[in-house]
């Protein structure tokens, strides 16, 4: 009922041990402030969170699943794009 009237927001959370915000899910809220509060309550209940971002879902531009083949398939056959053809000298160690 209320869902119909309130916009959808995407939630990104930055955990204490992570460098970047990660998408964790979505929620409904009437405005940005309430979305932030709801995100705190719904997505940070057990974690040690340093920061939350909420973004209106409508602001996200997404690729079309129907264009999946055109967009992503060509890269599957281009193994030379993976950096696996270089000899790494032992002295470099772990990369």
């Amino acid at each position: 009922m209320t869902e119909a009237a309130s916009p959808l927001w995407e939630v990104f959370v930055r955990p204490r041990n992570g460098l970047a915000h990660r998408h964790v899910g979505s929620l409904h809220a009437h405005d940005a402030k309430m979305a932030l509060q709801a995100a705190r309550d719904v997505y940070t209940r057990r974690g040690e969170t340093l920061s939350i971002w909420v973004v209106p879902s409508s602001a996200i531009v997404a690729s079309d699943p129907g264009e999946k083949d055109m967009m992503f398939e060509p890269t599957a056959s281009k193994i030379y794009r993976h950096p696996t053809f270089y000899e790494v000298p032992d002295e470099v160690g772990h990369m």
Partner: peptide, 12 residues
């Protein structure tokens, strides 16, 4: 609660 979000919020 009126919404799932508020249900969890009130539980908290």
């Amino acid at each position: 609660a009126p919404t799932l979000e508020e249900d969890i919020a009130m539980a908290n």
